[in-house]
Simulated assay, not measured.
Amino acid sequence: MIKVYNIYMEKPSYSGHRARLRKRFENAGLSSFLEHEILELLLTYAISRKDTKPLAWALLKKFGSLGSVLDATPSELGEVPGIGKHSALFIRLVREVMRFYFLEEVKKRKEITTPENVVDFCRASLQGEPNEVFEVIYLTTRNTVIGVERISTGTIDRASISPRKIIEQALKRRAAALIFVHNHPSGEPDPSAEDRALTETLSRIAAPLGIAVLDHIVVGKGKFFSIRANSFIKTKKEKV
């Protein structure tokens, strides 16, 4: 008996939709995309042979926005039915690539003179972190970026900071100035009394070594607070 196989397999209904999404992106970027469509497109590169639209809507329903989806941890993403470890790690990778990109942009700047010069990186780096994170930007005498280092990852409301470690790293990198950046997971960027005290302590320790503390930026949800801009610290060029 001769077996006959059907070689004309019907394509799944979603395959055409995936192709159209990719073509739209190829032709015009994401400018015309809605949030759920961006997530659909993103998931097509992590999930094969499956309609990603229901997953995109499920993610938005749970987290509320595209930004919140990208800020979620892999374990949180895995709570959505249909989002496996591979997909969760892929979404996390996208966010980490964003962070790396903004860091490179900061390094390309010829000079950092205002909080706005670094706030995009700060948001990409820290916004959405479930715990309080403290980072230091090391600069030259001309305020160009030498490097960025994550000093501490703390609990939901407190980070353990070692002034000695920060100063040691600044000297090792031959930094002439520092900018501190940390997040408030609660969403409100107003600095606490502890934040201000830490800034004063670090400024006092760094000054005799010829290292200036230019700013301490606190990042919240869509907002930031510059301690320098609000006159809580002064640089050598400013009159008290």
Rank of each mutant, 00 (worst) to 15 (best):
residue 2 I to N: 14
residue 2 I to L: 14
residue 2 I to K: 12
residue 3 K to D: 14
residue 4 V to S: 10
residue 5 Y to I: 15
residue 6 N to Y: 14
residue 8 Y to S: 15
residue 9 M to W: 08
residue 9 M to A: 14
residue 11 K to G: 03
residue 11 K to V: 14
residue 12 P to W: 00
residue 16 G to Y: 04
residue 20 R to W: 09
residue 21 L to Q: 08
residue 22 R to V: 09
residue 26 E to G: 03
residue 27 N to Y: 07
residue 33 F to Y: 09
residue 34 L to A: 12
residue 35 E to M: 08
residue 36 H to P: 01
residue 37 E to A: 11
residue 39 L to M: 11
residue 41 L to R: 00
residue 41 L to H: 06
residue 46 A to F: 03
residue 50 K to P: 01
residue 52 T to H: 00
residue 52 T to D: 04
residue 55 L to N: 01
residue 58 A to G: 06
residue 60 L to S: 05
residue 60 L to R: 09
residue 61 K to Y: 09
residue 62 K to N: 02
residue 64 G to E: 12
residue 66 L to E: 04
residue 68 S to L: 10
residue 69 V to W: 10
residue 71 D to H: 15
residue 71 D to M: 12
residue 74 P to D: 11
residue 76 E to D: 12
residue 76 E to H: 01
residue 76 E to Q: 12
residue 80 V to L: 04
residue 81 P to L: 07
residue 82 G to H: 12
residue 83 I to Y: 04
residue 86 H to S: 05
residue 88 A to P: 00
residue 90 F to E: 05
residue 91 I to S: 05
residue 93 L to K: 10
residue 94 V to D: 09
residue 95 R to D: 07
residue 97 V to Y: 08
residue 97 V to I: 13
residue 99 R to P: 01
residue 101 Y to A: 06
residue 103 L to F: 08
residue 108 K to H: 11
residue 109 R to V: 03
residue 111 E to F: 05
residue 113 T to G: 00
residue 113 T to Y: 00
residue 114 T to V: 15
residue 120 D to T: 14
residue 121 F to P: 00
residue 125 S to C: 10
residue 127 Q to A: 01
residue 128 G to L: 03
residue 129 E to Y: 13
residue 134 F to V: 15
residue 135 E to C: 09
residue 136 V to Q: 03
residue 136 V to W: 01
residue 138 Y to L: 10
residue 139 L to H: 04
residue 139 L to F: 05
residue 140 T to P: 06
residue 141 T to R: 13
residue 143 N to L: 08
residue 145 V to A: 12
residue 146 I to G: 10
residue 146 I to N: 10
residue 147 G to A: 15
residue 149 E to V: 15
residue 154 G to V: 02
residue 156 I to S: 13
residue 157 D to C: 06
residue 160 S to T: 14
residue 166 I to S: 02
residue 168 E to K: 12
residue 169 Q to Y: 11
residue 171 L to V: 13
residue 171 L to P: 02
residue 172 K to L: 12
residue 177 A to G: 13
residue 178 L to Q: 07
residue 179 I to T: 03
residue 180 F to H: 00
residue 181 V to C: 05
residue 181 V to P: 01
residue 183 N to C: 06
residue 186 S to V: 15
residue 187 G to H: 08
residue 188 E to G: 04
residue 191 P to F: 00
residue 194 E to S: 14
residue 196 R to N: 04
residue 201 T to L: 12
residue 201 T to M: 09
residue 202 L to Y: 07
residue 204 R to P: 06
residue 208 P to Q: 04
residue 208 P to F: 02
residue 209 L to C: 11
residue 212 A to D: 12
residue 217 I to L: 14
residue 217 I to F: 05
residue 218 V to D: 06
residue 220 G to A: 09
residue 221 K to L: 13
residue 227 I to A: 03
residue 227 I to Q: 03
residue 228 R to S: 04
residue 228 R to A: 10
residue 230 N to L: 04
residue 232 F to C: 05
residue 233 I to L: 06
residue 234 K to D: 02
residue 237 K to D: 02
residue 238 E to W: 02
residue 238 E to K: 02
residue 240 V to M: 06
